[in-house]
């Protein structure tokens, strides 16, 4: 109510001067007010975006054109040398750009049946409990969990059990395979919920309609369930892919330092050799690659699934 007062006063003032019709003025002031309210509501998010995202990104971009100080750090300059040196981390880019998508794919392959089981095959009274169990590993320290995997995948773990069935000399720990296993394990809790949500939303009558029209269960899954769950798969994959692209702890622990990701290159550049400008250039390249990858990925996903649904998830 209080908010109406200025609007009415404003209208009166105008009216005395005998200008435009009253209704128009009222709507104009209220639209002005709603714009102001919108601006105020968006301000925290906007400030967050600018100061915690754009400003750091701008600083990184600025650093990437600078030079390394003799004792490490940054001195202002304008050089493209850091970008020309990028091939020196080509192997790290290659490792990341092959293992991160592969890890994401594997995680999705493991997460989908779990989410499907939870959303379709589990009675509602067990669903919440099981979903919480999926998330449970997040309650303990990530390092602790990776240490446990170091034992499981270590030579006294899985390989020694494989040896009992005749598969000798299998090496898992400190190989890319260990990193992939760790990725599936570590990121499953991020992948399952979005797929679960999209499967749970799925109208079961659509599956009946498909069967009614002659589609076998397999074809129904491929032609109805999967496309309609795609937005959830896309969301989960995006989350996992982004985190995996920047991960350095996982390759350090389960790759034993022999599987070198961009994240590891960045840790070394910023914390060991303190070559900040080169580190900044590597970061910029990583952000650019991620941006382009995600852009094309989203376009692909949107074209494959119903646009409106995909945009909502």
């Amino acid at each position: 109510m209080a908010g109406l007062v200025p609007a009415i006063l404003f209208t009166r003032g105008k009216k005395m001067r005998g200008s435009r019709p009253r209704m128009m003025k009222l709507s104009m002031t209220s639209s002005l007010r709603s714009k102001l309210v919108t601006a105020l509501l968006l301000a925290p998010a906007g400030l967050f975006f600018v100061f915690l995202l754009l400003v750091p990104l701008a600083v990184v971009l600025l650093f990437s054109f600078g030079e390394r100080a003799p004792a490490g750090g940054y001195v202002p300059a304008f050089t493209l040398q850091n970008y020309m040196d990028l091939p020196a981390r080509g192997k790290a880019f290659f490792n990341t750009l092959t293992l991160a998508p592969l890890g994401t794919l594997l995680t999705a392959l493991f997460a989908f049946p779990m989410a499907y089981f939870l959303a379709v095959r589990t009675s509602p009274k067990w669903r919440i409990a099981l979903l919480i169990l999926v998330m449970a590993p997040f309650w303990t320290s990530q390092l602790l969990r990776y240490y446990a995997w170091m034992i499981i995948l270590g030579n006294k773990g899985l390989p020694s059990w494989l040896a009992m069935v005749g598969l000798t000399d299998v090496r898992i720990i400190n190989t890319p395979w260990a990193v992939l296993i760790g990725a599936v394990y570590g990121y499953l809790p991020l992948m399952v919920p979005p797929i679960y949500v999209s499967l749970e939303k799925l109208d079961k009558r659509l599956l009946e309609a498909s069967a009614d029209l002659g589609a076998t269960p397999t074809r129904t899954f491929l032609q109805v369930t999967l496309p309609l769950a795609l937005p959830g798969v896309a969301t989960g994959s995006m989350l996992v892919f982004i985190l995996l692209m920047g991960d350095y702890i996982l390759p350090q622990f389960l790759g034993g330092g022999k599987v070198f990701f961009i994240g590891n290159a960045l840790v070394d550049l910023f914390l060991q050799s303190r070559n900040w400008p080169f580190g900044a250039a590597v970061s910029v390249a990583l952000v650019a690659i991620m941006f382009v990858t995600i852009y094309f990925y989203m376009r692909f996903v949107l074209s494959k699934s119903d646009t409106r649904r995909a945009a909502l998830v």
Binding site: R205, L206, E208, A209, L213, R309
Partner: peptide
């Protein structure tokens, strides 16, 4: 899926995708 009958569902159940 192996019966020669078809159904019109109450809320149509059209495939949104």
């Amino acid at each position: 899926y192996r019966r020669p009958v078809n159904m019109v569902f109450q809320h149509y159940a059209l495939f949104p995708h």
